[in-house]
């Protein structure tokens, strides 16, 4: 995989994060739906044990909801790329 391949691959991931994620369905996912229907959703609604910098994929300080999601997507995609790449590099050292 050369530099060009990396840029194309990362570019596709970023496009998905920027263009598609703001239009994701806001409905609860399968597990949340079941938790709601079966009445155990509130068990998971306590105080979070770790403080997350970007809770619920909404970048803090951005008013526009879609822009905040897209920004969270960009940040996450780049961080996760770095983590995956970094881990692979470390393993090969």
């Amino acid at each position: 995989m050369n530099r060009r391949d990396i840029l194309i691959g990362l570019g596709i991931a970023l496009l998905v994060a920027i263009i598609l994620s703001p239009f994701a369905s806001p409905h609860p996912d399968g597990l949340e739906r079941v938790a709601e229907d079966k009445g155990f959703l509130e068990k998971g609604e306590g105080k979070p044990l770790v403080v997350s910098p970007i809770p619920d994929y909404t970048f803090p300080g951005i008013q526009n909801e879609k822009a905040a999601t897209a920004m969270a997507g960009i940040a996450g995609t780049l961080v996760v790329f770095g983590l995956g790449y970094g881990l692979a590099k470390l393993l090969k050292k």
Partner: peptide, 26 residues
Amino acid sequence: IPLMGVMSAFIFAAQMVNFPIAGGTS
């Protein structure tokens, strides 16, 4: 090695895209 980074990034991004299914669920 870079493929591991690219795949991580792609799967993260793709997981953000909830698709609707029936019954107000995604």
